[in-house]
Design a protein around this nucleic acid. Structure first.
Lengths: 246, 246
DNA sequence: CAATTTTCATTTGTCAGACAATTAAACGTC
DNA sequence: GACGTTTAATTGTCTGACAAATGAAAATTG
């Protein structure tokens, strides 16, 4: 692990990169203790605050964890799927909001990925996953449910569908897509009319998954995708009309 | 933006969270300049090093950029897809290597996601994307190509396939899955025999994409997925046999 | 007056040294 | 041997300082 001492700027970034590379390459295995901040400062020939800034960068990516005390220090962290979810959701949310990604594009991506899971989910679903999907579909039909609660339930339904595929890598990838889209989805579920149709499709999907019928599940997901897109178009058209009349 | 002063530990994490939430909520728009480090230190009632550690955490996630000088400071960064790629690849790579994700699981996820793109790619592919796919398929058939170069070309081929869908959200999601799997894929492409079959399937996929035939592309992707899984199983079996004979 | 150079104030990047808080191990004491 | 005490190591934070970069204002020059 070496840094370029000729460039006295961004030292903490260079140090962070050196340690990150060592972790990715496997030179620093999981739960390995890094040298203390003072030792790192000596090794890299920088001050302790600079080392600390580098370590904080790595901590922000959940690559290390720190512990105080006599046997404390910085340890290479086993990156868990749950840790990665949060970052994935944050990043996806900001990507969508900062890059003028259209609802159509985001929606298309989401349903394309979700349909990729459908055959696997139909094949491998457990009673547990199915029960979750049923429970969420039932909750969605409760009158008086707020839009936020409906959307949260919608996310839970689709996550159960994805988790039923029994592939953590797929679950991780889709978590970002589904959760990041929730704010965008909020705007199209505010009428009782659209809720009815969505719930009907959710029920049809759950039926297909229960029957291990991947093709049927895929078909109903496609219908849901189409219906969602249409609703969004209507909402956008209405808003433009309202703006024009002002 | 408030922090909890009663807990004098993890101050930098609290400050980072406060600023991150403000960015995600939109309270701090893109290109907005944050207060100077000294001002932030005053506002949060902490020292400048603590503020700096918080800012470095945000910089590690590409949420802010910093600039020195009179009109410098920390600015809310527009998160670009290309910035997010790197983090996505790092995270995915570590998730796979640190969680004993089997080759089968990773491979299944990758091809499931890629097949989700196939219909869109067949429909929307430009001459450019097709040319890239053809060029990479041709490169793969060159004799004397190293394993690393073959795999790099393989990744380039599949990225072109995904990019042809014309959906940046899909491209972003898949970039992580495809690139993170490259180290795992490396081990199964070292025989001329397997290369031939892979190249034949790549060519078939390119043909299908050229003909706007999504179903055909999907079918050949499925074949490629199956063949890859079989190769991996053989390699693993051979290794176990070699270990047993020692 | 216009153009150029110089100066200067602001801000980040880095450093040195210090103290507080935490934690586990070493040490006594009963 | 069990239980409290001390101690050393380590991170978390603070203070104060200086260097480097950078744009704006001031001074200089044609």
């Amino acid at each position: 692990m070496k840094i370029d001492p000729t460039n006295p700027a961004d030292l903490s970034a260079q140090i962070a990169k050196a340690i990150r590379d060592a972790i990715i390459s496997g030179a620093l295995p999981v739960d390995e203790r890094l040298p203390s901040e003072a030792e790192l400062a000596d090794q890299f020939n920088v001050s302790r605050p600079t080392v600390r800034e580098a370590l904080k960068r790595l901590a922000a990516q959940s690559l290390i964890r720190t512990q105080r005390g006599a046997t404390g220090g910085a340890f290479v962290n086993r990156l868990k799927f749950e840790d990665a979810y949060g970052q994935q959701i944050t990043t996806s949310t900001l990507l969508l909001s900062m890059n003028d990604v259209s609802f159509a594009t985001a929606c298309e991506a989401r349903y394309a990925l979700e349909r990729a899971c459908a055959p696997l989910s139909a094949q491998r679903r457990t009673a547990d996953h199915l029960a979750t999907m049923r429970a969420e579909a039932h909750r969605q039909s409760q009158p008086g449910l707020t839009d936020e609660a409906f959307c949260a339930s919608d996310v839970a339904f689709h996550r159960a569908l994805v988790d039923a595929a029994g592939n953590p890598v797929l679950s991780y990838q889709l978590a970002g897509a589904v959760e990041a889209m929730q704010p965008l989805m909020n705007m199209i579920t505010f009428t009782a009319r659209s809720r009815e149709t969505i719930i009907a499709l959710h029920t049809a999907i759950a039926d297909a998954i229960e029957a291990h019928d991947g093709a049927n599940a895929d078909e109903n997901l496609a219908k849901l995708a189409r219906y969602t897109q249409e609703l969004a178009q209507d909402v956008i058209a209405q808003r433009q009309a309202a703006r024009a009349s002002k």
